[in-house]
Amino acid sequence: MFSFYRSVVLLVALVLLTGCERQDAPALDQQLYVWQRQWTPAHDAALRDSHADFSTLRVLALQAFPQAGWSKARIDADLLKRDGRPLIAVIRLDGQLQSLDQDEVRGQIQQVISDWQSQGLTLAGVEIDHDAGNARLPAYRQFLTKLRGTLPAAMPLSITALPAWLDSPELPALLSTVDSSVLQVHAVNDPRRGLFDADQARRWAKSWSHRTDKPFYLALPAYGVALLADAQGAPVVESEVPLERDGERRELLADPQQLRTLAVELRADPPQHLAGLIWFRLPLANDRRAWSLTTLRAVARGEVLQGELSVKLSADNGLYDIAISNQGNLDNAWPERLTLSVQGCEGADALAGYALQQSADLLTFSRLREGRIAAGGQRAIGWARCAHIDQGASNVHP
């Protein structure tokens, strides 16, 4: 009997200890980059709807380009104040800059901090995003050391970092100048090899954890780009701003299923010093090449992802508007084909992106080009004037 009670006590103690260990284990933080140079009314809903899932906003504040010079992002300070999340101002120094005029850069950064504070914004930190080559890391370290000395003592300083720096003996000294780093694991290879590789990202994160004793984050993609070729065949990347170029566009999109799996694995077994994930970027309702916010939130939560396409008909005196609705949490490709069982049709047509084939009792809409229907959204594909359309007999073919 004594042995039985002792076993029970040990079991209860083990359960309590295990529970304490789970409570003490820090959860991975999840943050967002806000990367639009010009803010629009769409930011209001995007910030509001992202509030529950992402703790901190890293906001593009200032950029420097080789020819164009300095460009300040036109933020909406009132929206950010109302949002209330911690703010980190990100300064982007293009990697193609031949050199950094350290005094000028520090002056520009101090001016941004002053401007934001004058608008009632409290900064939780400054991040420098500079894709320096390995040969320039000593100069970059000197710049960061001097910048650290000019910032308020209590203001954290972080940098965006490249996996290529892992091979540099300068990396430990560079990381010693900042409070944390953000390892960018997307869009760092030849774009013809793809936007993101999850296995490679895991390896980089593990290697980075061995090179730093400070908190670091992973910057993960929630967007896509188009790949074109210039006259010499070299890759040209098109993002949200259309390029005035002819030629075929190859669309590259970060796979939400792949990113969800990676995020779940990292939360379950994070590399040492990994503090969180930062998603690039906050999607707006009119973004052409970003995941919908519904999909991004589902990925961040680790939800099972699924698109749920269905036909949506709107009738008015025999005139039907025909659309595809996506009620899932995963953005879905336009279906290849939609068939509708009909009676007594006087006319019908497809809208841009689809072609129509019509017989006496069947309408078939076939996809001409690729596109996506956002989670929770819909897309009109045609119209028909018919005596009757049997929605129950419709078929959506992926």
Rank of each mutant, 00 (worst) to 15 (best):
residue 255 D to E: 11
residue 91 I to A: 12
residue 395 N to G: 02
residue 291 W to T: 03
residue 54 F to Y: 09
residue 160 T to N: 12
residue 170 E to Y: 04
residue 71 S to H: 15
residue 79 L to R: 13
residue 136 R to Y: 02
residue 12 V to K: 03
residue 160 T to L: 07
residue 157 L to H: 11
residue 11 L to H: 11
residue 319 L to C: 02
residue 252 L to Q: 14
residue 132 A to W: 00
residue 137 L to M: 03
residue 389 I to W: 06
residue 316 D to E: 11
residue 27 A to G: 12
residue 351 L to D: 12
residue 250 R to P: 08
residue 13 A to V: 12
residue 206 K to P: 00
residue 45 A to N: 06
residue 147 L to T: 07
residue 150 T to F: 09
residue 149 G to Y: 04
residue 221 P to T: 10
residue 305 L to N: 09
residue 241 V to P: 00
residue 168 S to T: 05
residue 227 L to W: 08
residue 132 A to G: 04
residue 162 L to C: 06
residue 125 G to T: 05
residue 372 R to W: 15
residue 200 Q to S: 13
residue 140 Y to V: 00
residue 154 A to L: 11
residue 258 Q to A: 13
residue 128 I to T: 01
residue 336 E to P: 01
residue 275 A to H: 09
residue 306 Q to D: 13
residue 176 S to T: 08
residue 18 T to I: 14
residue 237 V to D: 10
residue 77 A to Q: 04
residue 150 T to A: 13
residue 337 R to Y: 02
residue 69 G to S: 11
residue 137 L to S: 03
residue 153 A to C: 08
residue 171 L to C: 02
residue 68 A to I: 05
residue 394 S to R: 00
residue 59 V to T: 09
residue 262 L to Y: 00
residue 124 A to H: 05
residue 119 Q to G: 02
residue 262 L to W: 00
residue 36 Q to H: 14
residue 366 S to A: 15
residue 91 I to D: 10
residue 68 A to K: 12
residue 3 S to C: 13
residue 193 R to N: 13
residue 101 D to A: 10
residue 49 D to H: 06
residue 161 A to D: 09
residue 74 R to H: 14
residue 188 V to L: 03
residue 287 D to V: 02
residue 121 L to M: 03
residue 278 I to P: 00
residue 317 N to L: 10
residue 198 A to W: 05
residue 37 R to K: 12
residue 256 P to S: 05
residue 60 L to S: 05
residue 389 I to Q: 06
residue 59 V to C: 08
residue 370 E to P: 07
residue 99 S to G: 10
residue 327 Q to Y: 01
residue 240 E to I: 02
residue 394 S to D: 10
residue 135 A to N: 05
residue 145 T to I: 09
residue 288 R to T: 07
residue 375 A to P: 09
residue 259 L to E: 07
residue 127 E to N: 10
residue 153 A to E: 15
residue 260 R to D: 04
residue 138 P to I: 00
residue 199 D to K: 10
residue 6 R to G: 14
residue 230 D to C: 10
residue 98 Q to K: 14
residue 302 G to C: 06
residue 96 Q to R: 15
residue 382 G to S: 08
residue 88 I to G: 03
residue 55 S to M: 02
residue 11 L to Q: 11
residue 169 P to K: 05
residue 10 L to C: 12
residue 42 A to Y: 09
residue 110 Q to T: 10
residue 195 L to N: 07
residue 239 S to D: 13
residue 168 S to D: 07
residue 46 A to I: 04
residue 172 P to D: 06
residue 5 Y to F: 15
residue 20 C to L: 15
residue 318 G to S: 01
residue 49 D to W: 01
residue 142 Q to A: 13
residue 197 D to W: 01
residue 269 D to R: 09
residue 169 P to W: 04
residue 33 Y to D: 07
residue 115 D to C: 04
residue 231 A to F: 05
residue 138 P to W: 00
residue 8 V to A: 15
residue 291 W to R: 06
residue 309 L to G: 04
residue 78 D to E: 14
residue 72 K to R: 15
residue 240 E to N: 09
residue 362 L to M: 14
residue 93 L to Y: 06
residue 336 E to A: 13
residue 333 A to C: 06
residue 27 A to Y: 01
residue 40 T to G: 02
residue 25 A to F: 12
residue 53 D to Q: 08
residue 254 A to S: 11
residue 347 G to I: 01
residue 328 G to I: 07
residue 161 A to H: 05
residue 68 A to T: 11
residue 11 L to C: 14
residue 292 S to Q: 06
residue 229 A to F: 05
residue 308 E to T: 12
residue 57 L to G: 08
residue 389 I to G: 08
residue 161 A to M: 08
residue 356 L to M: 06
